[in-house]
């Protein structure tokens, strides 16, 4: 395992020398802290307190980002909305990538009939009408989700306001995870198929290593670059998918919000009050820029061949 340790050490070393990646890392950590720790500060207002006599106000010392069409503090809404979007971006993406990598790796490595069967299944899921599935899922999940919320509240005694925003996201994670893995599975399969023909795999086979060991220890690390790139590319789509699903009643319930929802509302009002679009978009875009540059940095750092540079 000595070799492995030095590989990670090398990778970290290379990452630390990539300025864009390091700046991105700091930006991400800053946004994460702001969204998850920030709301605990006393000066952050309630994101749902409506004041119809102070709607669409400009930014001020009191309301840093101004107020929305119902007089709510936009700064607070962006922070709380960030919690939802970041959670969705992390958890749902993780679920999708996890399923996709394992599925794709097995299909690509097994090949033959198993590969055919697995990939035709992916084809079917890919072509199934997404919206139909979502509507059906929303129908099925509606009661269990609220029962689960009640159960948690009864068991833990936490306030509903703290439990419900998290528990209502669970169906969202499931829905996005269940659909989002398809593309990643395809990519991983193609990469695994390409790598498994290389000499080092044949060497491992002739050494008599077990198939799972070859797949997960020797093949997957060699396709990690494309996986990272696709993962970071998939996050924006997944974060926006949340706003679509929430709109269909699966996920965030008003008056709670997310970046996607805030941006949609802001886009509708952009010519009246462009700040409503600007602030959530800045947070959303900087997160994604940072994430993608970090992704590229990771790819470069983990690239086994770049060690020779």
């Amino acid at each position: 395992m000595e070799k492995g340790t030095s590989l990670w050490k090398d990778a970290w070393h290379r990452l630390a020398h990539n300025r864009a990646a390091i700046v991105s890392l700091f930006v991400l950590v800053f946004i994460l802290l702001l969204c998850f720790i920030g709301p605990l500060m006393p000066f952050v207002k309630s994101p749902t307190a409506i004041n119809l006599s102070n709607t669409g106000a400009a930014p001020s010392a009191d309301f840093w980002f101004g107020t929305d069409q119902l007089g709510r503090d936009l700064f607070a809404r962006v922070l709380y909305g960030g919690q939802v979007s970041l959670l969705v971006g992390l958890v749902a993406t993780a679920v999708a990538v996890f399923i996709g990598v394992i599925y794709g790796a097995i299909a690509g490595y097994a090949g033959g009939k198993i590969d055919d069967l697995l990939m035709r299944f992916v084809d079917i899921l890919f072509a199934l009408p997404f919206l139909v599935l979502v509507i059906l899922f929303a129908l099925v999940v509606d009661n269990p989700a609220s029962l689960f919320t009640d159960w948690i509240i009864a068991k833990t005694g936490f306030a509903r306001d703290r439990v419900a925003p998290i528990t209502t996201l669970i169906p969202l994670f499931i829905a996005i995870g269940a659909i989002g893995w398809l593309t990643i599975a395809r990519i991983v399969r193609a990469q695994v198929m390409a790598v498994k023909k290389q000499e080092f795999v044949e060497a491992a086979v002739s050494l008599g290593l077990s198939r799972p060991r070859i797949l997960f220890r020797h093949i997957l690390p060699n396709v990690i670059g494309p996986i990272i790139i696709y993962t970071t590319l998939a996050v924006p789509g997944i974060m926006l998918l949340e706003s679509v699903l929430s709109f269909l009643g699966l996920g965030v319930k008003p008056p709670n919000s997310s970046w996607g929802i805030l941006i949609k509302e802001g886009a509708d009002r952009m010519e009246v009050n462009w700040l409503l679009l600007f602030f959530p978009s800045i947070f959303f875009a900087s997160t994604l820029f940072a994430l993608n540059f970090l992704g590229d940095g990771l790819r470069d750092a983990l690239d086994p061949k770049s060690a020779k540079d």
């Binding site: 509507i135 929303a138 129908l139 709109f247 269909l248 009643g249 319930k253 008003p254 008056p255």
Partner: peptide, 10 residues
């Protein structure tokens, strides 16, 4: 009061 939004047909 809790807000429950559903797709139009539902």
């Amino acid at each position: 009061i809790e807000i429950q939004n559903k797709e139009w047909n539902a």
